[in-house]
Amino acid sequence: MDDEPLARRGLELRLARHADIEIVGEAGNGRQAFHAISALRPDLMFLDVQMPGIDGFGLLRMLPATQVPLTVFVTAYDHYATAAFAASALDYLLKPVDDARLDESVDRTRARLAARKTEDHYERLLKFIATLPGGRRSEIDALLGDEGPRADCRLTIKDGHRVLRIDVDSIRWIDAAGDYMCIHAGDETHVLRGTMQQLERRLDPQKFARIHRSTIVNLERVKEMRPHVNGEYFLLLDSGQELKLSRSYRDKIKFFT
């Protein structure tokens, strides 16, 4: 994603040397990139920091966690490096892009994708084991299943093969992606299988509210609300993230009435 057509073309030619890379799309600004990522769901994105309108960092803040591809920043300014890695960038390339450094980024991407496939394989094994007859619930499953709604100031979740205790106050928002949910707490995003209804029952309704069929927000993290079209609103969180407040949930949030 780059606002300079020549830069995009140069990167495309360099990437053509790698037979396992397929270029599925390109964009000249942040808004185009947002729609392209939502539609194409790429594994890897080369992203310019400075673009007209929405810059590279703004684009990452707009994207739901489940849609953010592995990201390599490409820019002419090295002073963005710290911010780039703070945004969990896979790598950072300076223009003009050096072939050896680009190859290094591609190798790093392959390794990261291979690790991700290993995690997916482990998750499939867990699902298969769960279907086997005759076994008792594991201690982990018992712990999760027996926790009552709003038990204390910490939320116990199973993130992959880990059991975590999350400080409820650190949760900014939760969004759903199919059969999975992403809990955005502090600087981390935790992914777990379940439904919004199940998680909603475990959260304090005085602090957490459903603002969309796939989104729950910590009301104490909301700093601003601004109107949008058709009776909808955007909520600005203390992290800078914007979330849409659906019209059908607007009247149910006492915090804003």
Results as ranks from 00 to 15, higher is better:
residue 229 V to Y: 05
residue 164 L to K: 15
residue 221 R to K: 14
residue 117 K to G: 06
residue 92 Y to T: 03
residue 247 R to C: 00
residue 135 G to V: 05
residue 159 D to F: 02
residue 236 L to R: 13
residue 180 Y to K: 10
residue 81 A to S: 05
residue 154 R to A: 01
residue 249 Y to K: 01
residue 168 V to D: 03
residue 137 R to I: 04
residue 167 D to M: 09
residue 239 S to R: 11
residue 44 L to G: 08
residue 144 L to F: 01
residue 111 A to S: 12
residue 127 K to I: 10
residue 18 H to P: 02
residue 154 R to E: 04
residue 11 L to G: 05
residue 172 R to S: 15
residue 245 L to K: 02
residue 60 L to N: 09
residue 195 T to E: 06
residue 209 A to C: 09
residue 7 A to C: 07
residue 40 L to E: 14
residue 220 E to T: 05
residue 53 G to A: 13
residue 181 M to S: 09
residue 256 F to M: 01
residue 203 L to D: 02
residue 47 L to R: 10
residue 145 G to S: 10
residue 119 E to D: 14
residue 77 Y to E: 06
residue 200 E to R: 07
residue 245 L to M: 14
residue 67 Q to L: 14
residue 77 Y to F: 13
residue 1 M to V: 10
residue 34 F to L: 15
residue 182 C to T: 06
residue 32 Q to N: 08
residue 173 W to S: 10
residue 176 A to Y: 04
residue 141 D to S: 14
residue 169 D to Y: 05
residue 221 R to T: 03
residue 192 L to E: 03
residue 193 R to S: 10
residue 111 A to V: 13
residue 169 D to H: 13
residue 160 G to F: 08
residue 141 D to L: 09
residue 226 R to H: 03
residue 227 P to Q: 11
residue 107 D to P: 00
residue 178 G to Y: 07
residue 152 D to V: 01
residue 144 L to G: 02
residue 75 T to P: 02
residue 226 R to C: 00
residue 150 R to H: 04
residue 176 A to L: 08
residue 252 K to L: 06
residue 148 G to K: 13
residue 186 G to Q: 12
residue 232 E to W: 00
residue 228 H to E: 07
residue 127 K to W: 09
residue 113 L to M: 13
residue 113 L to E: 10
residue 139 E to P: 04
residue 119 E to Y: 11
residue 167 D to A: 15
residue 224 E to N: 12
residue 129 I to F: 13
residue 106 V to A: 05
residue 126 L to D: 15
residue 176 A to P: 02
residue 134 G to S: 03
residue 224 E to I: 01
residue 211 I to K: 00
residue 126 L to N: 15
residue 96 P to K: 12
residue 246 S to R: 03
residue 202 R to S: 08
residue 37 I to M: 12
residue 177 A to F: 12
residue 18 H to K: 06
residue 229 V to G: 00
residue 183 I to S: 08
residue 65 A to Q: 12
residue 23 I to Q: 12
residue 149 P to C: 04
residue 102 L to Q: 06
residue 127 K to P: 00
residue 141 D to I: 06
residue 61 R to D: 14
residue 122 Y to V: 14
residue 240 G to Q: 13
residue 149 P to E: 07
residue 8 R to S: 04
residue 197 Q to Y: 02
residue 43 D to Q: 15
residue 43 D to L: 12
residue 229 V to W: 02
residue 21 I to S: 06
residue 162 R to F: 11
residue 126 L to V: 07
residue 44 L to F: 06
residue 36 A to P: 03
residue 114 A to V: 09
residue 165 R to H: 15
residue 67 Q to K: 10
residue 84 A to M: 02
residue 26 E to H: 13
residue 216 I to A: 00
residue 106 V to Y: 05
residue 21 I to C: 07
residue 87 A to T: 04
residue 39 A to C: 08
residue 239 S to G: 09
residue 70 L to R: 10
residue 117 K to W: 06
residue 25 G to W: 12
residue 118 T to A: 14
residue 185 A to W: 08
residue 62 M to N: 04
residue 135 G to S: 09
residue 19 A to I: 03
residue 255 F to P: 00
residue 230 N to K: 07
residue 87 A to F: 12
residue 134 G to W: 06
residue 64 P to G: 11
residue 59 L to Y: 09
residue 105 S to V: 08
residue 211 I to M: 00
residue 190 H to Q: 05
residue 233 Y to T: 01
residue 191 V to G: 02
residue 167 D to L: 13
